[in-house]
């Protein structure tokens, strides 16, 4: 099926998020605007204005009430999704590269950049999911990354751990309550930064993407690498698809090298891999710049990708996608069906 092209941004996309119901798509880009779109037809619902710098990251709470965004203007802002009103602004010494709500939306973490003598940190804020409520100014917790700065981070199941991916290719597990470092394991090639970290639906495992051209599926509990997916290009983003056992990887030649290479050279394709067997299943073309972010619809009906070219492409899966099964998967499905009958 033909994808819906969302041409609302003027500069490179940085992150895309679906809300939990999969009916809204939030996208942020370097053009200082947050856009929200209807997932089913690509109509723009509105924009959230206020940031004074490139916006790096966005997240939406589990009830689709409030929105958090982090920007190069050194702030995290909280927005009322419905009205577009800015509810709260937290200031930081450096740019904010990643924000994420925990599973019940009571906490928000932010990853701040290492710059101008400030070390990279992961901060945690208490949130009340209520547009009327007064949000607390205080940072509940600050984790300082003195070894290698964190590039991405997220909350595990039960908000038990904070998992961070670092610039040096390692992954850390911090205690979600105390902020103590529990493990730091070199997962990706040394000094190849981790560019994305996205969760499975129950947040028990996650996927990382790295400039080392690989993506890894990792268990949140013990940081065990469950699966590894190898691509032929530096990766910027990776997502796990619900319902079907696939992962989507996006990347391409670094933006600065793009003008020097032909379009076919850039490998600007979304790649689908089988989550369990690690085989590449297919590719989706369309972007004419590297893919900076991919997001899977939580209801499993489609995915969206955002590129350096400034476009968001929203794809709905067709029948072939749902029918695709490996022989051994079909075998197991048939066996289960027979057992339940």
């Amino acid at each position: 099926m033909r994808p819906i092209l969302l041409a609302g941004h003027e500069r490179a996309l940085t992150q895309i998020k679906y809300n939990p119901d999969g009916d809204l798509i939030f996208s942020v880009s370097k053009d200082q605007q947050i856009c929200v779109w209807f997932a089913h037809n690509g109509e723009r619902l509105g924009t959230y204005r206020g940031h004074q710098g490139a916006i790096w990251t966005i997240d939406v709470d589990p009830t689709s009430t409030i929105l958090a965004s982090g920007s190069a203007d050194n702030t995290i802002r909280l927005w009322d999704i419905k009205t577009g009103k800015c509810l709260k602004t937290w200031d930081f010494p450096t740019a904010v590269k990643r924000v994420e709500f925990n599973e019940d939306g009571t906490k928000l973490l932010g990853v701040t950049e290492k710059r101008m003598g400030h070390l990279g940190t992961i901060v945690v804020l208490d949130i009340e999911i209520d547009v009327e409520a007064e949000q607390s100014d205080e940072k509940v917790m600050t984790i300082v990354c003195d070894e290698s700065k964190a590039t991405v981070a997220g909350w595990s199941y039960l908000s038990k751990y904070i998992i961070a991916g670092h610039e040096d290719g390692s992954v850390s597990q911090y205690d979600g309550k105390t902020g103590d470092l529990l493990y730091n394991i070199p997962i990706h090639e040394l000094n190849q930064p981790i560019t994305d970290l996205q969760w499975s639906q129950d947040r028990t495992y996650f996927i990382t993407a790295s400039k080392d051209k690989t993506s890894k599926l990792i268990s949140a509990k013990d940081l065990e690498v469950l699966k590894s997916y190898t691509a032929d290009t530096p990766l910027n983003s990776a997502a796990i698809t619900p319902k079907k056992d696939f992962v989507i990887l996006g990347g391409g030649q670094a933006a600065m090298d793009v003008t020097t290479t032909a379009a076919r050279q850039g490998k600007f394709e979304a790649r689908f891999y089988h989550k369990i067997f690690e085989d590449e299943i297919g590719r989706v073309r369309g972007h004419f710049g590297p893919l900076n972010t991919v997001a899977a619809d939580p209801t499993g009906k489609g995915y969206a990708s955002g590129g350096e070219d400034g476009y968001v492409r929203v794809h709905a899966f067709d029948k072939g996608y749902y029918d695709f099964l490996y022989e051994v998967e079909r075998e197991r499905q048939n066996r289960l069906a027979a057992a339940s009958a």
Binding site: T204, Y205, E327, R332
Partner: peptide
């Protein structure tokens, strides 16, 4: 095919144990 069957079984087993643990933790 044998290898895939094994991989699938390993995955399903891991998921089941993980889900169980999650329910218990909760």
């Amino acid at each position: 095919v044998e290898a895939r069957r094994r991989l699938l079984l390993e995955w399903v087993t891991w998921r089941e144990s993980m889900e169980e643990e999650l329910v218990e933790d909760r």
